[in-house]
Amino acid sequence: MLTLPGRDLASARTARHYVRDTCRSWRLPTDTTDDFVAITGELVANALEHTESPTVVIACALTPGTATVGVTDDGRSGGTPVASPSAGGSEAGCEGGRGLLITDALATRWGTRRSGGGLTVWAEVAIEATS
C-alpha cells in the first residue's frame, strides 16, 4: 500500500512507478504490467482531478489469475466517477471521463465502493498463464 499527496500531480507518476515495481516483483507478463500501470495512472489522475482529497492511497493485490489495484480518496468534492462501470458504454462523448473509459477497455472488470466516507475505484486485470 502506498499513500501519496492528493494535491500533487506528481503522485500519478509515483503511483505508476510503484505499480510497475510491484508487477515486476510479482513477475507479471509485460503486457499485463503495462495495462495495470496505465489503469493506475488513470485512476490516480481521476482522484487528483476530481477530488480535494489530501491523500490518495494505492493498494495492489495478487490472486491466482488476477491482479487488482484500488485507488482511494477521501470522497470529497466530486469523487464520483464520470463513466459507469459497464463495458461498451456510450460515455465517449462526455467531457472528461476518458480515464475510466481507458480503464474499462483495459481492465477485466472495475467498480467503486465507499467506506468510511472515502471512495475507492478498483480495477482487475486477468493474468494469463505463461508457458
Rank of each mutant, 00 (worst) to 15 (best):
E52S: 14
A47L: 06
L101T: 03
L43D: 01
G79T: 08
P29L: 08
G99F: 05
V121G: 03
T51Y: 04
G117L: 01
D35I: 00
T40H: 01
S84Q: 11
E52V: 13
S53D: 05
L43I: 05
V125Q: 06
I58N: 02
I127R: 09
T55Q: 11
C94D: 11
D34H: 08
N46K: 09
D74R: 12
G89V: 07
V125P: 06
V82E: 02
T66Y: 13
V57G: 06
N46L: 06
G70P: 08
T72V: 07
W122M: 04
T68C: 10
I127H: 04
C94F: 15
N46R: 08
S86M: 11
T40I: 03
E49N: 07
D73I: 04
A59N: 10
P85N: 14
D31T: 12
D104I: 00
V69D: 00
G89P: 02
W122N: 05
F36Y: 08
S115L: 07
T33K: 01
T63Q: 09
G70I: 08
T103L: 05
A92T: 06
S84A: 12
S86A: 12
A67Y: 02
I127L: 13
V71R: 06
R98F: 12
A67V: 14
V56R: 03
R98H: 13
S115E: 14
I102E: 01
N46A: 13
E49Q: 11
T33D: 01
V37Y: 07
V37F: 06
H50R: 13
L119Y: 10
L101H: 08
A61K: 11
A59C: 05
S77G: 10
A87R: 15
R76D: 11
T40P: 01
V37G: 03
T112D: 03
N46Q: 08
R98L: 15
V44D: 02
V44A: 02
D74W: 00
E91F: 15
A126M: 00
T66W: 07
A61Y: 03
E91M: 12
T63P: 00
P85C: 09
E52W: 02
D31N: 10
T80F: 05
A83F: 10
N46G: 12
I39G: 02
C60A: 10
W122A: 03
V69T: 02
G79S: 15
A123K: 06
